[in-house]
Amino acid sequence: MKITFDDKILAKVADFSDADLVLDFDNTIGENGRPVEGCSIGTNYRLIAINKGTVPESFDTVIDSNFAPLHFKKYGQMFLTKDMTLSEDSVRRVQLKESGEVIDSNVQILDYRQV
């Protein structure tokens, strides 16, 4: 499984090189970078930068990307496909796509690293 970031997304995440990246789909990560209780699934993806070494245990698999490994929950793989893209559309929304289909038309990119 792999997600390819387009050039616009690569520019947006360029300063995340010193972070762990989590692809969250069920509101597991709170604004302080720590796990919270929440529930949503399948169409509420968020790409979140958190402090290195603080990935919650529930993110038990890794998705390859052309930027950095993305930590993900293994049971959520049923919502994804083998080859996907993360790209910005003409109105600057970030979209997670597989061939021929949009998985999420408004992916948030967030930085929850603690200073």
Rank of each mutant, 00 (worst) to 15 (best):
M1Y: 05
K2L: 09
K2G: 06
I3N: 02
T4N: 14
D7R: 14
K8V: 06
A11L: 11
A11S: 14
A11H: 10
A11I: 05
V13C: 07
V13G: 06
V13Q: 04
D15M: 02
D15V: 03
F16K: 04
D18C: 03
A19C: 14
A19N: 08
D20F: 07
D20N: 09
L21H: 04
V22M: 02
L23R: 03
D24C: 07
D24E: 06
F25T: 09
N27V: 08
N27S: 12
N27Y: 11
I29T: 01
G30R: 07
E31F: 12
E31A: 10
E31N: 11
G33E: 02
G33R: 00
R34C: 06
R34P: 01
R34Q: 15
P35D: 01
P35T: 10
E37Q: 12
E37I: 09
C39D: 11
C39S: 13
C39A: 12
S40L: 12
T43Y: 12
N44R: 10
Y45Q: 00
Y45G: 03
R46I: 00
R46H: 11
L47H: 06
L47Q: 01
I48G: 00
I48Y: 04
A49H: 02
I50P: 02
N51G: 08
K52V: 10
G53A: 02
G53S: 01
T54I: 05
T54N: 13
V55F: 03
V55C: 02
E57W: 02
S58V: 15
S58W: 00
F59W: 07
D60E: 04
T61V: 08
D64N: 13
D64C: 05
N66I: 06
F67A: 03
A68Q: 15
P69D: 07
P69V: 03
P69S: 07
P69H: 07
L70M: 10
H71R: 12
F72M: 05
K74H: 13
K74I: 07
Y75T: 10
Y75S: 10
Y75E: 14
G76A: 07
G76L: 03
G76S: 15
Q77I: 11
M78R: 14
L80Y: 11
K82I: 09
D83Q: 13
D83A: 11
D83K: 15
M84T: 09
M84F: 10
S87G: 06
S87I: 11
E88C: 11
E88M: 15
D89R: 09
D89T: 07
D89W: 10
D89E: 09
S90L: 08
S90V: 12
V91G: 02
R92Y: 10
R93G: 04
Q95W: 05
L96K: 07
L96S: 11
L96Q: 10
E98Q: 13
S99Q: 12
S99M: 08
S99T: 13
S99A: 12
V102Y: 04
V102M: 05
I103E: 05
N106V: 00
Q108L: 14
I109D: 00
L110Y: 05
Y112D: 02
R113G: 02
R113T: 08
Q114Y: 08
V115S: 09
